[in-house]
Simulated scan of single mutants.
Amino acid sequence: MDTKTNRRILILGAGYTGMMAAHGIARRDKTADVTLLNPTDVFNERLRQHQAAVGQDLGAHRIPDILAPAGVAFVQGRAARIEADRHRVVLDDGRELAYDLLVYAIGSAAPRVANAFTIDDPMFALALRDNDKGVLTVCGAGLTGIEAATEAAETYPGMQVRLLSRGEPAAMMGPKARAYLMRALFRLRIEVRTGVSVARVLPGAVELEGGDHLPTDVALWTTGVEYAPLAAEAGIAVDAHGRVAVDAALRSVSHPEIFAIGDAAAIRQGYGVIHGTCQSGIPSAAHTAESVTRLLQGKDPKPFRFGYIHQPVSLGRKDAVIQFTNPDDTPSRWYLKGRAAIAYKEAVSSSPLKFYRSTTPIPARMTGRTGGRHNRLNPAPASVDTLA
């Protein structure tokens, strides 16, 4: 690429990964023209959605204010299509944004299910408040479902909270951490039903496969993810799930001027394809910021390497459990519980806004696990989990 003129960098999505990439590029190369596109101008703290879901005030953070110190331009709007051959993104209102390099950071979303809320729905907090003596049914006992159920049970002790799952809650954890988690669910009087599958959610009830109906006042759906069809519709190579297929440097295998990061990318490592979490997404963004800078300097990008460290889980505001992991995300023998786990989770899973506001870019090597070294900057998993 012409490093003197091809410096228009367009980033789609202002989640954790998009924000990290924008700041990383702009702070590394002051000559780059970095623009970030997002449908809203409010930053969503996805790591803490389980807190917002029960009405906790996390504060309002405007995206333009966060981007301004780094000199990143912000455009509010929704991408309708990518015209990859023209290096253009067309917005749903007809505006066009040109790019030389594109960073695809749209992420994933929970599927919308009739008569059920998702964790990012602001109306969910109101529904809980209005049914504080009623029944909440959480469909899916992955980490998202567990954190939502425990927050609700602690915030509304008069509410009956039910957790439904095909398998054991937090099945990805080791036996000791999982046993501690189960004791916390029991302490909070959360009803756990395993070996069940939800057929559909009806007004006032959840219907199980087999026909049984469980009365409920509020239903929360936390299982499965969906990926935006934007890349596939543009002719960009995607995997079977709709994630952008990338090479070792996180560049699209069909369009090398496009990087894909976070949940939106099918990032393959030696142990398999990375599953969508902020723990892996932010390192992919930091690496891409470094790679884009290298391209602007006429250098080749380096391969991305990542290994998992932990599975931190909040169990309300007064308890937590941390399962430490091997690089492939399988549980190791180590875990934390109680106050130590709370302190750890607050340290590593606190808002990354402080990184965005920093005057120094975060080196990509500091955000992943390389050569067996652990770091303490990786946030906790925050994506919607598959039904365990």
Rank of each mutant, 00 (worst) to 15 (best):
T17E: 15
G18R: 04
M19R: 00
M20W: 01
I25F: 04
N38H: 14
E45H: 08
R46D: 00
Q51V: 00
A53M: 09
G55A: 07
Q56K: 11
G59I: 02
I63T: 09
P64F: 07
D65H: 10
L67S: 00
P69Y: 05
A73F: 02
F74S: 10
V75L: 09
D85K: 04
H87Y: 01
R88M: 08
D92L: 01
R95I: 07
V103C: 13
A105K: 02
I106C: 05
V113Q: 12
N115Q: 11
I119G: 11
I119V: 09
A125Y: 05
A127P: 01
D132P: 00
G134D: 07
V135Q: 13
I146A: 10
T150I: 05
G158M: 10
V161I: 07
L164Q: 09
S165G: 15
P175W: 07
A184T: 05
A184E: 13
E191H: 05
T194L: 04
S197E: 13
V198Q: 03
L202Q: 13
P203D: 14
E207L: 04
L208K: 07
G211K: 03
T216K: 01
E226N: 07
Y227C: 05
P229W: 02
A231P: 01
A231R: 02
A232V: 03
A234N: 06
A234R: 07
A237K: 11
A240E: 15
V244W: 08
S252M: 07
A260R: 11
A266M: 13
A266N: 12
G270I: 02
G270N: 14
G272C: 12
I274K: 07
S284A: 15
S284D: 04
R294C: 12
L296E: 14
K302V: 10
Q311Y: 13
Q311K: 11
D319I: 11
V321A: 15
Q323G: 10
Q323N: 15
P327V: 14
W334A: 11
L336D: 01
A343S: 10
E346D: 15
T360P: 00
T360S: 10
G372E: 05
R373P: 00
H374R: 15
R376D: 11
S383Q: 12
V384D: 14
T386S: 13
